[in-house]
Design a protein around this nucleic acid. Structure first.
Lengths: 334, 334
DNA sequence: TAATAGTAGTAAATCGTTTACAAAATGTGC
DNA sequence: GCACATTTTGTAAACGATTTACTACTATTA
């Protein structure tokens, strides 16, 4: 494969001149530039990005570190990140952590060792706890989860507000015994906050037996929902904090032959294909996933260009999409 | 950040010795090795992978080039690829082509310029047509689509067989007017072949008005299904070649207030969350997506280690999952 | 004891760029 | 035609690792 040396030789100039022609074209006679370009063309020369990266101490690669790309939320984000990166001439290294801090640490080290230009990540709880901005030798944008200590760029949903609106919607539609399936991620906790705030705002008090912390997985949502249904006084509505938990909940409700929303209403976070296809369709808060990913990529690329600019926290609002799963409660009161 | 030079200095040896300690440990006195390791530890030294890559002319990165990571099929594959890569110490660069040959070419050039160890790709039609194995300076494994010319590693489904079984299942359940929504990808064409083969094997002849070529998108599936439904003699079953088309088909069927399977049966390819959650659930051929991705990654990594080994074509069978959307046809014959 | 083999370590070349600096060429004003 | 500024070009040193060629030392064997 032709190197810059070959091009220089073929054009009868030094490598420095070739480099100048290719980078900015400054301080090069038009005639020489033509000769160089011709040689580049003829030899099919393409700059070696590894060498460039070594010399310039940075690359055009960004890392995307999420818990699981199979989660539709992160799938959409990754698509948005990759699109934006492509537009700006960056490429994306994909990393799944499975919420495992060790895996996460390994990936962060990899980022460092390969001199990435920056990374977008949804950190595990441990990392959030120990986070300080000086940890990393490259810029980072945090998505989805909030970081209390540390001055970083962040893009996330207004979770408290979103949960508040979702639960308020349930109350307004006549539901009173509203149970919640939350995860222990920061996201889940904030949504719990919004849930409780909404209950209180409408004169209802949170009941501990209606509040469960579970891992964000369908099987966990399934198991927890069965337990809720089997309570002496089962809930008349179920609030879940993500689509995987909701999926499990739906399966459990179906298994017990309950009707949505007559026996129990179901609302959740995150728009998915299935949420609009099942009958009744599911009421939910749609996160602007594509926009989150796009914004994160833009923030990152801007910071790469200007490391000293002040950090930004972008808080996006969710969109309440009302569907059949939370239709106004018939007849029965509390 | 500490370099190998700093470590060498700190340990009072040359950089070559440090390198040897870190790579194989050969020809180094235990005492010296200890000193070096201590220095590595103390300085928190981590080898610079860019430098290593430049010197060794290859990296531990592999490319994954697919049409769209949002397609659940490719989401699952990417997860499997990333898992396998992680286990073997490789990282994955994600590329979406949107079936655009130019984007694909840009990505392939990027792979070359960054000296990736290899790539896994689902090529666009144009690339399939012009494919020759000598095209690329790095190993490639093709997934999902078949390549006629060129001696490459390939992992794909036995599409003809899968489609044959799916359509045969419909026929056995009493359906006779079976329409097909195919894409023009090689995958779609092979599935069409299986569809026609199955019809003929059971004494039915393919009807051109029941055969549509459409892009693999939900909106296209929706539009095409409406047209089929509005035919003078509409089909009594619909065979679609992927989950996106099926999604559109389902929405169209719902819009026309038809009942599945009484008015029209629906079968498709690819297991998705929604296919098992809608009622009736959808009969389909589940591709072993995780296995496809895992196998592809393994083939690739093996070839990276041994470039001269003979190529392999791994053909996997799909799994027919029978559900309500193709329940045996009641009363009415043809 | 000398020849030989093997081990331990060093210095320098290499991978392909970019860039600071120096040198050469060109242009300008008088 | 000379001094000086300006533009163009080349030289060589990085970047940070690996690897080769080579030297020096130790141990083994006849």
């Amino acid at each position: 494969m032709a190197s810059i040396k070959d091009v220089a030789e073929a054009a009868g100039v030094s490598t420095a001149t070739v480099s100048r022609v290719l980078s900015n074209g400054l301080h090069v006679r038009p005639e020489v530039r033509e000769r160089v370009m011709a040689a580049v063309e003829r030899l099919g020369y393409r700059p070696n990005l590894v060498a460039r990266s070594l010399r310039s101490q940075q690359s055009n690669t960004i890392g995307l570190i999420v818990s699981d790309i199979s989660n539709p939320f992160f799938t959409a984000i990754s698509r948005a990140v990759e699109d934006s990166a492509y537009e700006q001439g960056f490429s994306v290294v994909l990393c799944n952590t499975d919420e495992n801090p060790e895996k996460e640490a390994i990936y962060l080290n990899l980022m460092r060792d390969t001199a990435v230009a920056g990374a977008i990540m949804s950190p595990t709880r441990q990392t959030i706890a120990s986070f300080t901005d000086s940890n990393f030798p490259f810029p980072i944008v945090i998505i989805d989860r909030s970081i209390s200590n540390g001055d970083v760029d962040v893009v996330l949903l207004d979770n408290v507000d979103a949960a508040y609106r979702l639960v308020t919607h349930l109350v307004e539609h006549g539901y009173r015994r509203i149970a919640a399936l939350c995860s222990e991620m920061s996201t889940g906790l904030e949504r719990q906050l919004g849930y409780e705030k909404a209950l209180r705002a409408h004169g209802l008090s949170p009941r501990s037996e209606y509040m469960r912390y579970i891992p964000p997985r369908a099987d966990a949502g399934y198991a927890a929902t069965l337990k809720l249904i089997d309570l002496a006084e089962p809930p008349d509505a179920l609030f879940t904090v993500n689509s995987l938990i909701a999926e499990g909940a739906l399966r459990a409700i179906r298994e017990r032959n309950l009707t949505i929303p007559d026996d129990i209403a179901l609302v959740t976070f995150d728009e998915t294909t299935w949420a609009s296809l099942v009958q009744p369709a599911i009421t939910l808060i749609a996160q602007p996933t594509y926009e989150i990913g796009k914004t994160a990529a833009e923030l990152l690329i801007q910071r790469i260009a200007a490391p000293e600019r002040p950090t930004r926290q972008v808080i996006l609002k969710g969109q309440l999409i009302v569907r059949g799963s939370s239709a106004p409660r018939q007849n029965t009161g509390v």
